[in-house]
Design a protein around this nucleic acid. Structure first.
Lengths: 117, 117
DNA sequence: CGGCTGTATTGACAAACATCGATTCAATTG
DNA sequence: CAATTGAATCGATGTTTGTCAATACAGCCG
C-alpha cells in the first residue's frame, strides 16, 4: 500500500469557480514511480522484451553469440539493447574468455511486477 | 506457456568454429512481444505511471481537472500523456459537458502483468 | 449572442533513441 | 608474434519523445 491520494469530489461544479485546489504529490511515490518507469522503459522495446523473455526461459546464463542470431539485427544493435537492460538493472553479464554471458537479475522486476498486479 | 526456444548448448566451443547456427524466431512470440512492449513503453514514463496509479486507486472515473494539479506540468503536457495511455489501450475517456473523465481499462494490463510474474 | 472555461491540438525544439557500418578491444589459437 | 574471433564502443543518421506556449474547440452561463 502506498500513500492514499484524496482527490476532490468528482461532482459537477458550476463553471466560473475553480475546479480544485492544488494538491502536493508525495515524493515517496515519485521516486518509486521513477524506478518502476525505468524498468518499464527498458521493457518498452520488443527486442528487449524478447531478450528478457529468452533469458528468463533459461535458468542459467546465455551466451551473446546465441542471442544475436535470434533477431534480424546487427550484433552491435543487440549489444546496445543488452546494455540498456543492464543499465536498467534487469540483466547482468559475465565474461568467460571470448564469450559474454547474460542473465536476468532475479528480483529486478519484482517491485514493478507487484505494482502491476 | 509460449513456444519454447531451444538454444544451442552453452558449452565452450573452440574458436574458429562458428558459434551457433541461425535460429528462426517464431512470429507468434514476436507479435505478443510487440503488444506487451507497447504497454511497457506507455508505462515507461514516471508521469504516465503515476497517472495510471492514481486512476487505479479510484475505482471510478477521474476528472482531468483533478489530475493536472498533481503534477508540475502544463495542462497540454498532461493531456499529451493521457493521449499516449489511451493509444496504448490502457485508459479510456469519457466527456461530460466541459469535463473529461479518465479511467483504467480493466484487463488492459493483464497480458503484460501475467508475463512479468 | 458573447465571454468564459476545461480540454485537446498544433508547432517548435532540444533530448533521447534505434540502427548500422566501421573500428577497437581482449582473449584464444596456430 | 600474427591472425582470428566474439563483443563492445564510436560516429553518423533518421525517428521518436517530452515539454511548453499559443491556439482551437466545445460546452456552459449570463
Amino acid at each position: 500500500m502506498t500513500v492514499d491520494l484524496e482527490l476532490a469530489p468528482k461532482t459537477k461544479r458550476p463553471a466560473g469557480r475553480p475546479c480544485c485546489e492544488p494538491v502536493v504529490y508525495p515524493d515517496v511515490e515519485r521516486e518509486q514511480a521513477q524506478r518502476m518507469a525505468q524498468v518499464a522503459k527498458a521493457l518498452g522495446d520488443p527486442i528487449r522484451l524478447q531478450l528478457v523473455d529468452v533469458l528468463r526461459k533459461h535458468a542459467g546464463k546465455v551466451c551473446v553469440c546465441e542471442l544475436v542470431p535470434l533477431f534480424d539485427l546487427s550484433q552491435p544493435t543487440v549489444s546496445h539493447h543488452l546494455k540498456k537492460l543492464r543499465e536498467a538493472g534487469i540483466v547482468g553479464s559475465e565474461r568467460q574468455g571470448l564469450w559474454a554471458y547474460y542473465y536476468v537479475i532475479p528480483d529486478s522486476l519484482e517491485e514493478f511486477s507487484a505494482w502491476l498486479t
